[in-house]
């Protein structure tokens, strides 16, 4: 593979193509990821959007995009991507579109859609080997409607629909594993707080074709309950505690880009977030914290043993 144009953080773009002035919350980790992805992909990109927080990126008559955007519905954004990709290919073949008028197709969805109502459409797009990037901003809940429990809500996190209990009783769905089980061209986890890692991965994704997953953890100040100023810090803690592994799937193999060493205890990540406050107050819930830690430890043990 060609050497990355991003050798160090100072090589990251200092001006950005996504327009400011969007309605995303202050400190939005999802917006940061979308902006960084767009910088690398460039303006000849079409974002095909599923209903979610990012619906409000473009509110008539204003858009932050210099290229294209299509708002579809919650369940079928990958099918919208299919229609656009197919039509572009037909027109390129017919000669009614020049090669330089081609677009990179990016489906943009939140975790609620990605793991729930939109999973069927996504899965089918992978079956069809659709040439697209699937960018999921994972804020671990239905963020745009006020953070209700989604299939990506982590175990134990309190949400608007799991408020009084011990938080989300189930387990976060493993979207990365669902994708890689179906052998896509590429899959990677990223987050805005690690912009260099993100830029290199998008660079790789851009150089490939076929179905490509970019799963971006999106720290959400109002949904997770922390001050917007801590958004980057919370994201980095997710990596350093091992809760959010930075990895990529390429040529049929999963590679962990950063094995946190030493791994910080999970409570360093949990404690600053209101959604986990019940694990620490009024009494510390050692059992639950221990369970969360054990799951993280087990994951990394598998990585060390070469099984993950």
């Amino acid at each position: 593979m060609k050497e990355s144009q991003f050798k160090a953080a100072r090589d990251l773009p200092s001006s950005h193509i996504l327009g400011a002035g969007t309605a995303m919350c202050a400190g939005c980790g999802g917006l940061g990821a979308v902006r960084e992805v767009y910088d690398v992909l460039g303006k000849d990109t079409i974002f095909v959007n599923a209903a979610g927080c990012m619906t409000l990126l473009s509110v008539y008559p204003f858009t932050p995009f210099r290229g294209s955007w299509l708002y579809t519905a919650m369940a079928s954004a990958p099918a919208g991507g299919q229609g656009v990709r197919d039509a572009l290919d037909i027109r390129l073949e017919q000669g009614s579109l020049r090669k330089d008028e081609d677009l990179q197709v990016v489906v943009l969805t939140g975790d609620g859609t990605a793991n729930g109502i939109g999973l069927s459409a996504t899965s089918a797009a992978i079956d069809r080997q659709l040439d697209f990037i699937y960018l999921c901003y994972d804020n671990e809940g239905y963020g745009n409607t006020g953070q209700q429990t989604s299939a990506a809500t982590p175990h134990g996190a309190r949400t608007a629909t799991d408020p009084e209990t011990g938080g989300m009783p189930g387990r976060k769905k493993d979207l990365f594993a669902i994708w890689t089980a179906n052998r896509p061209t590429y899959a990677a986890t990223v987050l805005a707080a690690e912009p260099l890692d993100l830029a290199r991965k998008i660079e790789t994704a851009r150089s490939l074709s076929g179905p490509r997953l970019i799963l971006a953890l999106a720290p959400c100040p109002p949904g997770w309950g922390f001050e917007p100023s801590r958004s980057v810090e919370i994201g980095r803690l997710a990596v350093r505690t091992g809760i959010f592994p930075l990895k990529e799937y390429i040529d049929g193999r999963v590679v962990h880009n950063r094995i946190p060493h030493p791994r910080l205890p999970v409570e360093d990540y949990l404690k600053p977030q209101q959604r986990f406050a019940h694990l620490f107050e009024p009494q510390r819930d050692d059992k639950r914290i221990g369970e969360i830690q054990a799951a993280v430890d087990a994951y990394w043990l598998e990585v060390e043993n070469g099984h993950a």
């Binding site: 193509i17 996504l18 327009g19 400011a20 002035g21 969007t22 309605a23 202050a26 303006k43 990126l57 473009s58 008539y60 008559p61 204003f62 858009t63 932050p64 995009f65 210099r66």
Partner: peptide
């Protein structure tokens, strides 16, 4: 139709007021 052909005109929205 609810379409926009401007590029990045969201900068007209002054979110600095938040």
């Amino acid at each position: 139709a609810p379409n926009i052909h401007a590029a990045a005109n969201s900068v007209q929205v002054r979110t600095g007021l938040w």
